[in-house]
Write a protein that binds this DNA or RNA. Structure first.
Lengths: 225, 225
DNA sequence: TGCGAGTTTAATCAAATGATTATATGTTCG
DNA sequence: CGAACATATAATCATTTGATTAAACTCGCA
């Protein structure tokens, strides 16, 4: 009665992996159950067998992504230092640099993570119930975590709207190197996608925007006026 | 033989407007010809009559968007000062601030432009032939224009990869306030979308990242190492 | 008024799609 | 082995979709 779990997980897992890639690339409606079954070297009936229907498979994939992201961020962010409090500016700056490096590597260089992010982007553009899962499990935490570090850097209460906006800006910088990679790579005449050298330059570019927080700790909105 | 042009344009225009909104919201496959016809208060047969088929309507919409964007950017960027050359840092900084303000207002506050951008984002994620139109008509020019200003600000040759990366970063910051608006607004508990006060704060946030270029003119990549 | 080109509409068709079902295959245990 | 159960597969069904078609409508003009 408990046997075959391994094989069951095998097929279900292949369906999730295939669906993640295809949903990310073509969207929910653009991906057919036949495409998923074919990509997974499985059968269309197995989708119903394991997940009931197409939408339930989609939701299972979203939950899977949320788990993986939490795992990634829990390990790489929370665990290594817990929620930052009472850090010095320099400690916060270094922590933020580390996280941003991880995010860049994860989202730009890692093929599977690219699928996640593309899928998550689509879900944001037209949120369904799957969005609630992602928001509560992931987004809110990212805002909270990045915000707590940025708050230290620019010396503003972390509940201030401006802190959230800066966190959002930072995420936007990173994400757009994946979402907008096609025109960027064409502009740079880089036929073969991101190579090590380019990723390095991207990293430096985004990190410099973090260091900027320290250099002029947010006199900007008084100065700019 | 020339009469009725006005009425013809009427229907074709309504189809383009409806398609722009729906394609942006649901993607190409997620939008049915019946949805478009209904939204345009027209008939499914009119799509074939004016555009031949669904994909041709999509391409017509892409060309329409490219025209509108060029128009917008030609007027607001190129025309008012032509391609920047020999500007002082301060002039370049002010020019860049003006453009970024325009882009924020256009892409975040303007409903129709939001449709454009969402549609363009989808096209980037999975480029078809429509992408070529957008790249040649719009993207390349945006990189070129923003790059030429940023090059002056950070005092690096405008053909340097880092200049393009900074331009890309800047666009990413702006675009993500549209593409990622749902989680941002939920985080801020702003039920009613972007209000004037919030847009103002977004503007200040992004502008401060421009001013940063001047304050520390790109010693970052030597300092960071 | 009635002709005729331009335009709109509803009906229809073939292909694709999500879902279902019945059958086949394989594995475990008595 | 063979009964019982879990899983896989192919065939089938109802619906949706893009496209096509034929008929109807509009309006300028003779």
């Amino acid at each position: 009665m408990i046997q075959k779990r391994q094989f069951e997980d095998e097929t279900a897992g292949k369906l999730i992996a295939a669906g993640m890639q295809l949903f990310g690339e073509f969207g929910f409606k653009g991906t057919t159950t036949r495409m998923i079954a074919s990509e997974a070297h499985s059968n269309i009936g197995s989708i119903a067998y394991y997940f009931g229907n197409k939408r339930n498979l989609y939701l299972a994939i979203i939950r899977h992504i949320a788990d993986r992201m939490r795992e990634q961020f829990d390990l790489d962010m929370m665990k290594k230092g817990q929620l930052p409090e009472g850090l010095t500016q320099e400690e916060a700056r270094l922590a933020l640099r580390r996280i941003v490096k991880d995010m860049i590597r994860t989202f730009i260089a890692d093929d599977e993570a690219s699928c996640w992010l593309l899928l998550v982007m689509r879900e944001q553009a037209h949120p369904t119930e799957a969005f609630d899962i992602l928001y509560e499990e992931v987004f809110d935490m990212v805002y909270k975590f990045l915000g707590s570090l940025i708050a230290i850097l620019i010396d503003i209460d972390e509940r201030d709207t401006r802190v959230t906006l800066e966190a959002h800006t930072l995420v936007g910088q990173i994400v757009f190197f994946l979402v907008g990679r096609i025109p960027l790579l064409r502009r740079l005449e880089n036929k073969n996608g991101y190579d090590a050298e380019l990723i390095d330059l991207v990293e430096k570019t985004i990190l410099s925007h973090i260091d900027f927080y320290v250099n002029n700790s947010f006199q900007s909105d008084t100065k700019v006026e």
